[in-house]
């Protein structure tokens, strides 16, 4: 990030800075067109939309779209997503960081092999697991329950979580761990008193990346949730769109509601996205 603007390969003279900004701003507006369309649609009434289409300023702002969408089912979808994400993320992080710690600092002979075994999960297409999971969940009476879905999410979260936490634990100096060992500190204490606090940024990063991924997950929710009142947001929205296919105003409002928490997290914790992805390729 130390590069100054004039050293940017595309810009050799400062006279071009103005042009540079113009190009960027045009590109930004172009890039955000779908989002602008969404917001405009959510704010206008259905008649306005039918006459003028999505990309025009609303004749009158109609906030009721949001309350109506909320009451028509989005409320349920929203809280289901909150519950699933709220349980999945913390439980997942505890399990994943313990595993990652064992793989990085415990002089574990099998570490490489186990890590490779865990990485396989990153590449498995969901389709490869669906049928047996359906049978398994059926046998355990966990079909159509948020508990069952949360358990699946925890399992599928292991590879990415271990990958990220391992990336960060590797940066914890071995000397600190060794010093604690010599002082007679147990591995459990080293884990939660030394390694974990030193990797706090990683934990936050993982929480955010994982939270967003869980909030957005579609296919498992689609297969394993059957009743409407248990649906999570992405699934509920697609359902909503087939059911109320002509009520674009409400659908747009519903989509916007589902996006708001993600936008907030993104705005406040942005740098952790970068840090987290960095950890994943370390």
């Amino acid at each position: 990030m130390s590069q100054s603007l004039s050293q940017n390969p595309f810009l050799s003279g400062k006279s071009k800075v103005g042009l540079f900004y113009v190009v960027l701003i045009v590109a930004t507006l172009f890039w955000l067109t779908p989002v602008i369309t969404l917001v405009l649609t959510a704010l206008k009434d259905a008649g306005d939309f039918a006459v003028n289409g999505a990309f025009s300023l609303p004749k009158a702002i109609r906030w009721a779209n949001f309350s109506e969408a909320w009451e028509t089912g989005v409320k349920n979808y929203f809280w289901n997503s909150v519950i699933v994400t709220g349980f999945k993320v913390p439980i997942g992080i505890v399990l994943e960081s313990m595993a990652a710690f064992a793989l990085t600092h415990m002089h574990f002979k099998w570490a490489d092999r186990i890590f490779t075994y865990i990485l396989i999960g990153l590449i498995v297409p969901m389709q490869m697991t669906l049928v047996p999971l359906t049978l398994l969940m059926n046998a355990l009476n966990l079909i159509d329950t948020l508990t069952g879905l949360t358990i699946l999410y925890i399992g599928f979260g292991v590879p990415f979580g271990v990958l990220v936490m391992r990336g960060f634990f590797r940066t914890v100096p071995v000397a600190i761990i060794e010093a604690a060992r010599i002082d007679g500190c147990s591995w459990f204490r080293i884990f939660y008193r030394i390694a974990l606090p030193l990797s706090l940024p990683a934990v936050v990063s993982l929480c955010i990346l994982d939270g967003v991924a869980t909030w957005n997950e579609f296919i498992l929710a689609q297969i394993f949730l059957r009743s409407d009142e248990l649906r999570t947001l992405p699934l509920g929205l697609v359902q909503f769109s087939t059911q109320f296919s002509t009520q674009y105003d409400q659908l747009a409002a519903a989509v916007l509601i589902s996006v708001v928490p993600i936008v907030l997290v993104f705005l406040f914790f942005q740098r952790y996205f970068v840090a987290g992805m960095g950890g994943a390729v370390k």
Binding site: L38, N216, E217
Partner: peptide
């Protein structure tokens, strides 16, 4: 756009 769910991206 990368933080949005693909379902939402599809709908938009």
């Amino acid at each position: 756009p990368s933080v949005l769910s693909l379902a939402v991206v599809g709908l938009i």
